[in-house]
Simulated scan of single mutants.
Amino acid sequence: MRLLIIEDNQDLCSELADFLELQGDTIDTAADGVTGLHLAVVNEYDAVILDLTLPGMDGLELCRRLRHDAGNWVPVLMLTARDTLEDRLSGFEHGTDDYLVKPFSLQELKCRLDALARRTAGLHQPTSLSVGDLQLMPETREVRRAGTLIELTAIEFQILELLMRQSPKVVSRPHIEYSIWGDSPPDGEALRVHIHHLRQAIDKPFSTPLLHTIRGVGYQLKQSHAVSA
């Protein structure tokens, strides 16, 4: 499995990573909530191991943003020293899939991760995304409109997938920039240029525009003509 460990205790993080790599898993790590959220949004993982107490953004807020802002339903195993019913309920309300109370055995951690991956495989991530006659296949990274194959760069594909997952919501410029580049976005014109190229690819050859600019806010992927591009 490809796993993301978000844990600020470097000794524990190294111990988890070393153990899981010995089991054949591929591991990415983050020591704070902001970096962890960025990695979880821009990469595909089989599961995320998430500490509750993190610098920058705690585990509950990270999980909430991952679910509600990014529309990402990767299985999340929360690590915590808190074991009250209220704490567990709060975690589940924010989108956590399972809880593991510190201290724990590494074997139990692995068993819970395997169970989460089996239980959630294919349940939350659709095999395709559609808006009008535009279709995106995340697994094969194909984009088609009205049956016509559309070639996109990697960044254009990421932007389109984000807009399609959020459709018909308006997605702000800062949210798109953070999802693509994290805390180090390029100059202010970069996103505008990528949006222009994306619009040329998915809208220009067709009679009905789908990608709309909401001035002063961000962008929206929607079939309606209600918002001018």
Rank of each mutant, 00 (worst) to 15 (best):
L4S: 02
I6M: 09
E7K: 11
E7V: 04
L12N: 04
L12R: 09
C13N: 11
C13D: 05
E15V: 12
E15S: 14
A17C: 10
L20R: 03
L22E: 14
G24M: 10
G24Y: 10
D25G: 01
T26K: 13
T26P: 00
I27R: 05
L37K: 01
L37F: 06
H38S: 07
H38D: 01
E44A: 13
Y45I: 01
D46N: 15
A47V: 07
I49K: 01
D51K: 08
T53W: 07
P55M: 14
D58H: 10
C63E: 00
R65W: 02
L66F: 08
R67S: 03
H68S: 12
D69W: 04
W73E: 09
W73A: 08
V76W: 00
L77E: 04
R82S: 12
E86T: 10
L89Q: 13
L89V: 15
S90R: 15
G95V: 03
D97G: 04
D98M: 02
F104V: 11
F104A: 11
Q107S: 10
K110Q: 10
R112L: 03
L116D: 02
L116A: 06
R119Q: 13
H124F: 15
H124W: 11
Q125G: 12
P126N: 08
G132V: 03
Q135R: 14
Q135F: 05
P138D: 06
R141S: 09
E142N: 08
V143T: 06
R145W: 05
L149M: 10
I155R: 15
Q158I: 03
Q158Y: 06
L163M: 08
R165Q: 13
Q166R: 15
V170H: 01
V170E: 00
Y178G: 07
S179V: 07
W181D: 03
W181A: 05
P186W: 09
A190R: 07
A190I: 06
R192T: 14
R192L: 11
H196Y: 14
H197L: 12
A201S: 15
K204M: 13
T208G: 02
H212A: 06
T213H: 10
R215N: 10
R215F: 09
G216E: 06
Y219G: 00
Q220N: 07
Q220A: 06
L221D: 06
K222E: 12
S228I: 12
